[in-house]
Design a protein around this nucleic acid. Structure first.
Lengths: 138, 138
DNA sequence: CTTGAACCTCTAGCCACTAGAGAAACTACA
DNA sequence: TGTAGTTTCTCTAGTGGCTAGAGGTTCAAG
């Protein structure tokens, strides 16, 4: 049996976060000692590891709820789970795309002031003030 | 003179957001009509455009505050502004890096179930449950 | 002068936590 | 068994950057 602190150390999930997951219904409420402290079994530890891993991969609490639902109904769960993963993947790709265009823009802006005669006004500030100086839309 | 609605249409910043920026000190409080409604001048519009553009590039409210500070002290502001832009750039790059490793992992996970014999247990769920199935750290 | 759109302030909610207060319960050692 | 020190409990409030809604006032057009 693990205390909440044990669980926290083993999974690197902070204690208040574990309680939060319980409140959100991701973790089922564990047994308690006579003094009302949580005591987890191996299944609880496994479940929390699952949640942690999914969160690290950027799945929302809601998506994780669905995945946990699916774990409980192993028949036909695979396609549904794959769908969730794929939709997460496409979100990640969209974010990367957007960030790459921001990266380009920021590189351009940051370089403006290093040149010689350019910066009698600050190029960074000018670029931010005037959208026309941008090469891309964003 | 522009009403808050005019400003909102011209900058594509929603009205409550404009008021929020004022509350946060990014926008200085504009004049008011006798009936207490905000009326902005061209400078207000310009300032809001600046903020919008910077937010689109992912600068935090705090960073934008600093940039606005710098605008008010044009001497030696350029290097400081460039520093802020560069630090924003490195944050963006860090995010991209992380997202790319998530992307790889998600591609791998999502493909698991499409094969032939692999998925007697759902590979997506198994991968999330067992970190050892990962190729990379994250 | 009236109608309807736009505006005002204020409060509360979103996500996924994080921090802190004040009290109770464990654990280790004497 | 006593006690000191750590851990845990619940509860409330705060984070960032907005967004939504209630209930009331003011503006602009006809």
């Amino acid at each position: 049996m693990f205390s909440i602190g044990d669980l926290s150390k083993r999974t690197a999930v902070k204690i208040p976060t574990i309680r939060y997951y319980e409140e959100m219904g991701l973790l089922s409420a564990p047994e308690r000692t006579e003094g009302n402290q949580r005591r987890y079994d191996a299944a609880g530890l496994e479940r929390l590891s699952f949640i942690k891993h999914a969160r690290d991969l950027g799945f929302s609490i809601e998506a994780i709820s669905e995945l946990i639902e699916l774990q409980c109904h192993p028949d036909r769960s695979c396609q549904a789970a794959t769908d969730i993963a794929i939709s997460q993947l496409s979100e990640v790709r969209a974010k990367i795309k957007r960030l790459r265009s921001l990266e380009k823009e920021l590189v351009r802006i940051s370089k403006g002031c290093d040149g010689d005669g350019v910066s009698e006004d600050c190029y960074v500030l000018a670029s931010l003030a005037d959208h026309k100086l941008c090469n891309h839309e964003h």
